[in-house]
Design a protein around this nucleic acid. Sequence first.
DNA 1: ATGGTCGTTGCACATTACGCAACGCCCCTT
DNA 2: AAGGGGCGTTGCGTAATGTGCAACGACCAT
Lengths: 253, 253
Amino acid sequence: MSQTVDRALSILPLLAEGPADLGRVADRLGVHKSTALRLLRTLNEHGLVYRQSDQRYRLGARLFALAQEAVENLDVREIAHPHLARLNEQCGHTVHLAVYEEGEVLYIDKVESRYPVRMYSRIGKPVAITVAAVAKLLLADLPETERRALAEKLDYPLYTPRSTPGAAAFLKELATVREQGWATDLGGHEESINCVGAPIRGADGRVVAAMSVSAPNVVVTADELLTLLPLVRRTADAISREYSGKTPAKDTA
Amino acid sequence: MSQTVDRALSILPLLAEGPADLGRVADRLGVHKSTALRLLRTLNEHGLVYRQSDQRYRLGARLFALAQEAVENLDVREIAHPHLARLNEQCGHTVHLAVYEEGEVLYIDKVESRYPVRMYSRIGKPVAITVAAVAKLLLADLPETERRALAEKLDYPLYTPRSTPGAAAFLKELATVREQGWATDLGGHEESINCVGAPIRGADGRVVAAMSVSAPNVVVTADELLTLLPLVRRTADAISREYSGKTPAKDTA
DNA sequence: ATGGTCGTTGCACATTACGCAACGCCCCTT
DNA sequence: AAGGGGCGTTGCGTAATGTGCAACGACCAT
């Protein structure tokens, strides 16, 4: 809609691939160097882009702060967190919280019991949308047309032999998930990892988020993990109730 | 430099305060509603802004992905991580990695031994720049003029009685840190938390990052923590060597 | 029903961003 | 040491682009 802004914003994903110099940016944008320079300067002033010592540009620090504040403003996350932590204490496994947005599913919270290996690595990162339990839960609730359209345009990478092979199978799985009100991922993403998940619903009954518990085969078998299902569903329902019940007014402030 | 982009980007911090409707955004920007609308639409197309069901705008998902990729492209972080993890195994305490950028110091990695309480909360969040050990290390290496200017314009909040009280004291502390090549924060941010840190240097000897080990008083006294100093410095030096030594070429790709 | 609020659209104007070309800088070559 | 190429930077004239206005339409509350 706005050409200038459009061009400027196109620089960000470009720099996400790695640092780039002025010429490269101008080329990729298909604009003159002077134009790219002006855009980069503006981005730089706002801290979204940083100029490193070798004069190349890379994504800037303000981006972290913004993402940080963005995630903290998600009220589902805030409400859900204590419940997730409690569930984690009870079962000891990794607990995830995810939302759907614009064709992507992303983790917005995570509590894990084990070594804190790169704990930040997944927060905000898009999940394996065709196999993850939380993704199934979130997509299963989309309006049918949107769901079909999305399923058709997705890629279906075969992470493992048990990964969802294609759109048809995926849609069928989503139908099942929708009916039963919970979802699993049994080795569909990583061979030895299983998950069970349940949806979190808003006051209008629509799914606003999804949560799951994940554990490796070596700790508990898939069957054993499934025995946690009632607990997971109870937790999700508790979050749903609290989320749809009291929505503390923070309109004006 | 570019008015349109400038206005568009000004919307982001505004939305970071919380969701806002069109009128509010237009007011805050000082532009007509139609102008704000066009800007918001453009931001929306790029996923930086999301329109929630109540029609208000909030920060969007792409922001997470970008911040994510940005942090992953920091090669210091990549090189340092295994060293930090090893240090964590050896001493059991929380280990931080931070960089300086445009007047801010931010954590870019963290390994902690204890409960994973909100582990994402600090990554990318600006640190308490006037007291944190890593901040002292990073600021101590700035060119004098920049260091002075920054020190003067900072606020010096008294988190605790031991917090750095003002610019003069801070500059003096930075001088000490620069001379000795390491830094501490003894209860300057939170009464019961102590840290020791050391700088990571690039090939040219300039400080490119800083790391620290933090532990609460109840686990180890400040004196005991200080006995870890040699280990911390050795780790930092190892990272420095690896960082300045082999810089894998990824220019063209 | 009716007034008010809020988002949306089309349009005419001129402000704003564009590409060009020339400059200056640094590094690499011979 | 002199020459050449690559890269970032600057000023400028042009017109394309973004701007504010005013009117419309949807929705909510009274």
